[in-house]
Write a protein that binds this DNA or RNA. Structure first.
Lengths: 162, 162
DNA sequence: CACAATTAAGTAGCGCACAACTAAGTGTCG
DNA sequence: CGACACTTAGTTGTGCGCTACTTAATTGTG
């Protein structure tokens, strides 16, 4: 911290042009890292027939059990515009079932099929191979995850409130 | 570091199921952070009529000058399948020109139009507002950028070589 | 009860990312 | 020179992510 939280912003110690250059680096790094991760998972998940976002959905279902679309969306910060077609593809692949809730006909509950449940066993090796590929220690990964999580919260608030 | 670089891997101190749970966290965090950044930039760039990837291209052109598509792709880790339509949209928006190189008719050189060059002045304020929204100090941002850059290199090598 | 407001899911359209393929230009080697 | 591999862009198809909109069910209110 260069100043107390809530204090007026420091006078810019770095000129705009310099910040633009730094932005180049940061933007690119985050964008590229995200896509590089995607590429790594794409490779690791190819045998399972899953894409990266589909894997995220499976992780939720494996850990939390049957969930309405809404709940999955909140977990993954995705809306129905993304999830509906994605879940339909997963249904077509035989991984999940989609059933209208009897208690609330608006919501659709997503549940694993037997095949979807069994896939977890084959997915157990994925994280370790990914971790190995990062070249990071478990501690570094956890630290990174922490920074990113805080960042996501801060960015979400900035977008909503700004 | 839990062991010297290059040493045989430690026996797994963490069971697969636990790693799968952690993977849930890390995957999600990176994915969500990347998209949250995208949302923030989308908002900041709306007035400029640029998308986030288009902004990345502009950053390259502002700093490096005219570049063949190939060079831009290497900078941003994007291939022609992504860049060709993107650059056509930017041409249609009047930001860039696309011209076949005389010395090598295979390559297409991308150059800023006057409007594209002028846009830089209006983009100068973007990084500062984004930085403010992150809630991070400049030092933290630079640290994050460094981790992500190393990660991208490691992941790229893992994908290529694995 | 009738009504509007809210909520959940889905659909359409655009842009990006990636894989696989095509077309055209360049360079090399026999 | 001509056959060949290589390089550079572009195209096509699939899936993701977002915005905006639609539909249907529920809730809240008079």
């Amino acid at each position: 911290m260069t100043s107390a939280p809530g204090a007026p912003p420091d006078p810019p110690a770095v000129p705009d042009a310099e910040l633009l250059r730094l932005d180049h680096q940061v933007c690119f790094s985050l964008h590229a890292a995200s896509r590089a991760f995607g590429g790594l998972y794409r490779q690791a998940l190819k045998d399972l027939g899953l894409t990266y976002p589909q894997y995220l959905v499976m992780l939720v279902l494996w850990e939390e059990g049957p969930q309405p679309v809404k709940a999955i969306g909140e977990r993954l910060h995705l809306d129905s515009g993304t999830l509906s077609p994605l879940l339909k593809r997963m249904e077509a692949a035989g991984l999940v079932r989609r059933e209208r809730s009897r208690s609330d006909e608006r919501s659709v509950v997503i549940d694993l099929t037997d095949a979807g449940g069994r896939l977890r066993d084959r997915a157990l090796g994925v994280p370790r191979s990914v971790l190995a590929a990062t070249g990071l220690s478990l501690e570094e990964v956890i630290g990174l995850q922490d920074v990113l999580a805080r960042l996501t919260v801060a960015l979400g608030e900035a977008v909503d409130g700004g």
